[in-house]
Deep mutational scan, measured.
Amino acid sequence: GKELVLALYDYQEKSPREVTMKKGDILTLLNSTNKDWWKVEVKATANDKTYERQGFVPAAYVKKL
């Protein structure tokens, strides 16, 4: 199945390749080969529509579930 990670801290994206997350968010882990930056998929809701974004977050800010 898919691997999930838990956001340990809030993170505000600093570039278009990154994604914003809030502490407590559960994210889908896409790639953890880089030890510093993990690629995740974030589900977000805006205007009653759910959309998914993929991007990088600092590996130290998340932990595998």
Rank of each mutant, 00 (worst) to 15 (best):
S32Q: 09
G1N: 13
V40Q: 01
R17F: 12
P16S: 11
L27M: 13
Y51N: 08
T28P: 15
Y11C: 04
K23H: 05
R53M: 07
F56A: 01
W37I: 02
P58L: 05
K35R: 11
Y9P: 00
T20H: 04
K43D: 07
T50Y: 11
T50K: 09
P16M: 09
K63L: 12
E52L: 15
D36K: 14
K14A: 09
K63S: 10
K22F: 11
E13K: 13
S15H: 10
K14H: 08
E52S: 15
V19H: 00
D10A: 07
K63Q: 13
Y61F: 12
E3K: 07
F56Q: 03
W37G: 01
V57L: 02
Y51W: 11
K49Y: 12
L6H: 04
D48Y: 08
D36L: 13
T28H: 09
N47G: 14
A60R: 14
Y11F: 06
Y9M: 10
A60D: 09
K22C: 10
A59K: 06
W38H: 01
V19Y: 03
S15Q: 06
E13V: 05
Y11A: 01
L30S: 02
F56R: 01
Q12W: 12
E18Q: 12
K63G: 06
K2L: 11
A46L: 15
T33N: 12
I26W: 05
W38C: 05
W38T: 03
K14R: 14
T33E: 14
G1V: 14
N47H: 12
W37T: 02
K35Q: 09
K43P: 15
K63M: 14
K39H: 08
G1A: 12
Q54I: 14
Y51R: 09
L6Y: 10
T50F: 10
T28F: 10
Q12M: 12
D10Y: 04
T33K: 11
Y9F: 13
L8W: 02
L65M: 08
K63H: 09
M21A: 02
A44E: 14
V57P: 00
A7K: 02
N31H: 06
V42N: 07
K64Y: 09
W38E: 00
E3N: 11
D25F: 04
N34W: 06
T50V: 13
D36E: 11
G1L: 12
Q12I: 14
V5S: 02
T33L: 09
Y51E: 09
L30Y: 04
E41S: 14
S32I: 05
I26M: 05
L29Y: 03
N31R: 06
K14T: 12
T45S: 12
L6V: 15
R17W: 15
L29M: 03
A46Q: 14
E41P: 00
K43F: 13
W37H: 02
V57C: 03
L30E: 02
G55P: 01
Q54M: 08
G1Y: 14
P58R: 04
G1S: 13
N34I: 05
K22P: 00
E18T: 08
D10G: 06
R17V: 09
V5I: 07
I26D: 01
A7V: 09
S32P: 05
W38F: 06
S32R: 07
K23R: 10
M21S: 00
W37F: 05
T20W: 05
K2P: 12
N31M: 07
A46W: 14
L27H: 03
K64H: 08
E41Q: 12
L4T: 07
S32G: 10
W37K: 02
L29I: 04
L6S: 04
W37M: 04
N31V: 07
F56Y: 14
R17S: 11
G24F: 04
K23M: 07
N34S: 08
Y51T: 11
G24T: 01
V40Y: 01
V5G: 10
V42M: 12
Q12A: 10
T20V: 02
K63P: 02
A44I: 15
A7I: 03
T50L: 11
K22Q: 08
D48M: 08
Y9S: 08
L29Q: 00
A7G: 03
G1C: 15
A60P: 07
A46N: 13
K14V: 07
A46I: 15
V5C: 13
A59F: 02
L65C: 14
V40L: 04
A7M: 02
K63F: 09
M21I: 14
V42C: 12
P58G: 02
N34K: 06
K43N: 11
A59T: 05
G55F: 07
N34P: 04
N34A: 07
K64S: 07
Y11D: 00
V57S: 01
V42Q: 15
P16A: 12
A44Y: 15
M21L: 07
D48R: 08
T20C: 06
P16W: 10
T28E: 09
A59V: 05
E3R: 13
K64D: 04
T50E: 13
W38D: 00
K49W: 10
P16F: 08
M21Q: 01
A60W: 09
T50I: 13
E13F: 06
F56H: 04
T50Q: 12
R53S: 05
K23L: 04
K2Q: 11
N34Q: 08
V5L: 10
K23N: 04
P58F: 06
L6F: 08
T28C: 12
G24M: 03
E3A: 10
I26H: 03
K49V: 14
S32D: 15
D48F: 09
T20E: 02
N47E: 11
A44H: 14
D36C: 14
D36S: 11
G55A: 03
K39I: 13
